[in-house]
Amino acid sequence: MTARVDERIAPVGPVRRLLIRPELGAVVGLVAVFTFFAVQSPVFRSADGIANWLDPAATLGIMAVAVALLMIGGEFDLSAGVLTGTSGLILVTLATRFGFDVWTAMLVGLVVALAVGFANGVVVTRTKLPSFIVTLGTFLMLQGVNLGVTKAVTGTVQVSGLRRADGYEGAAAVFAGTIDVGGTSFRVAILWWILVTAVATWVLVRSRPGNWIFAVGGDEQAARAVGVPATRTKIALFMTTAFAAWLVGSILALRYTSVQANIGIGQEFIYIIAAVIGGCLLTGGYGSAVGAAIGAVIFGMADKGIVFLGWDADWFTFFLGAMLLLATLANRLVRRYAEEVRH
């Protein structure tokens, strides 16, 4: 069926349609940041340079995409960062101290991570407390457990020696290996990140649960009134973030073969910032997975770009704050413009 032409939509056109996409702010930021570093540093724009900054973008991106889904669903997860540490610690501890092979240890880590996500979801949906508070509680508890258990088992604040465990070679190839593309080696994590982003995007825009995610974040009461399983949707979202935390925790543990007990702390805000740069509203109901992935690329570029330029790494947080403010402002303008059509 051809759309009926209505004289009132004539002036909107493809430009506005492009402008009202949530990713717009992130794309503009991406181009600006890339240009800024690429102009000044030949290394930055070389294939090796790209492989270099895509690596932090990938591990951050996996988390940012999952956190973006959760934020579109109207919730936060402050425990996501520490949970990457918990998953990694379980993997390395079980494989090096308790004789598990790497695959089984990873499976245990996955079960624990999903249980934490499930618990977050159940507490938030049952008590109706803000997820900010609930997951702050989980964050602190996990932080304590990570340190306490690691110290009790090893007497230090890290576990190491994963390389000698059974099944390490295979698992490392799948999660922490590299792939050669035209003489440059890229981390496999990049593939995982692309996969996660693609699946998340499909779920959001092409599946029923995707419709429910937007709805529970937009207006939970209204969503319930038309029969959306709001509680299940939210619990599933918390479990998705937990799954991402397990994936990233395992990738990092297999890559470095050791895990610090305090790893992941402070990362939770970076995930949220990347999601917001990618167009997610803090109030929920709006955003995109691709946007969050782009937000992560901006971070990766800034993280490595500052080093390539020989600047002090302290400038990174300054940059981070500036990007966050600019992106939020851009998103707000875009949304205003998009909604201006009303009369």
């Binding site: 419709n211 429910w212 937009g218 207006d219 209204a222 038309v226 959306v228």
Partner: peptide
């Protein structure tokens, strides 16, 4: 009640009973 302001008309129309 029962309409989500940020979602499109068609997404709202089928919310909770999406065709598969």
């Amino acid at each position: 009640l029962a309409m989500i302001p940020l979602m499109s008309v068609w997404r709202n129309f089928f919310l909770g009973s999406e065709p598969r």
